[in-house]
């Protein structure tokens, strides 16, 4: 039976087809000596030989900084005005199966007790096209958190490398519509998909045990926290590249009489994250902040939203200047 395929040579046509209708096409590309997700205009810009982009694609749904309102101060008045959500039609191409699995949790958070339209409107207009991995490195651990290069969770369209083509599988309705809308670009044929590479499951990690141990709050003052994480320098880089981290801060910026209200990424790794105006800081030490990150991934978040707190992409491990490896902590908590 002939399958739906996308010839790699036709990627340019797909980009044109998307951008021609006014959409933006986001893909991994080389920028300043590394692979990052960026808006691209041509197929030549797209990186083909990569494991994972340094950034997650979350910034196209949840930008690092965005204006959510504008204000003008009068003598006795405050004039607050909402702004239009900027939500262009977007295709995220070449995401990996691990990071796509972060979307369920993102959605749950941004629709929790308040519908954050700045997120949902963008999400509605975004199609996520993943490509199964044919390469991995020693930071990848999707298989340890019950995902794999074959998972389609969160993807609208799932591709697999197949020599000069990709096999195409539309997963969601949105994905089906996308393939239909650009039907001229997709072809059919019978091709054999290249083998996926499966990162080895880390033997000593038992996720159920990790969450079990975290549930019992007596671990809070466990000496193991400072022991394993005192080297953390609190730079927050891990949270910025993490596809499931979604904390933000609201700031007002401007001149004395007018300005904008912005929603900016924040990180629980900063000491100012929990610093009270009184000067008291309930998470005074870095290991307590790190404990929070770990708890968020494997306890609070999965409990509250049943989404995955960590998808095993390994970005935090790669980016960490002191090589603090989250899987080494998972191992400790599997004991």
């Amino acid at each position: 039976m002939a399958d739906k395929i996308l010839k790699k040579a036709d990627l340019g046509k797909l980009i044109e087809s998307v951008t021609g209708k006014g959409g933006r096409f986001v893909a991994p590309t080389t920028d300043s000596r590394q692979i990052v997700f960026k808006k691209v205009k041509s197929a030549e810009e797209i990186a083909t030989d990569y494991i994972l982009a340094r950034n997650s694609f979350k910034e196209f749904l949840f930008p690092q900084t965005e204006v959510v309102a504008e204000f003008t101060l009068g003598k006795d008045t405050v004039d607050m005005r909402g702004v239009e959500v900027h939500a262009p039609q977007t295709v995220i191409f070449g995401a990996r199966p691990c990071e796509a699995a972060s979307l369920k949790g993102m959605h749950a958070l941004f629709t929790w007790d308040f519908i954050d339209e700045f997120y949902t409107k963008r999400e509605d207009n975004t199609v996520v096209v993943t490509v199964g991995c044919t390469k991995a490195d020693d930071a990848c651990f999707c298989t340890t958190v019950n995902l794999s290069p074959a998972s389609t969770e969160g993807a609208d369209v799932y591709l697999r490398e197949a020599g000069e083509s990709y096999t195409v599988e539309a997963i969601t309705d949105k994905g089906k519509k996308f393939v239909e809308a650009h039907a001229a670009v997709f072809g059919s044929g019978s091709v054999k998909a290249d083998p996926l590479v499966m990162p080895e499951k880390i033997a000593n990690i038992d996720l159920a045990k990790v969450s079990e141990r975290l549930k019992d709050k007596t671990h809070y003052d466990d000496k193991v926290w400072p022991k394993l994480t005192r080297k953390c320098i609190g730079c927050g880089a891990c949270t910025f590249v993490c596809p499931t981290c979604r904390c933000f801060d609201i700031v007002d910026e401007g001149t004395a009489f007018e300005g904008e209200r912005r929603k900016n990424w924040d990180s629980c790794q900063y000491d100012t994250f929990t610093l009270h105006a009184s000067g008291h800081n309930p998470r005074e030490h870095q290991h307590q902040r790190w404990r929070n990150r770990f708890m968020c991934k494997f306890n609070f978040f999965p409990e509250k939203f049943s989404g995955k707190g960590c998808v095993g992409c390994g970005r935090c491990v790669r980016v960490c200047p002191v090589r603090l490896d989250i899987t080494e902590v998972m191992e400790e908590f599997s004991k």
Binding site: D31, S32, Q64, I233, G234, C235, G236, A237, F240, N264, W265, S267, Y270, P321
Partner: peptide, 12 residues
């Protein structure tokens, strides 16, 4: 323009 204001440069 690429700076993400993570402050890793300062922290390290």
């Amino acid at each position: 323009s690429r700076c993400v204001k993570c402050y890793a440069c300062r922290q390290v």
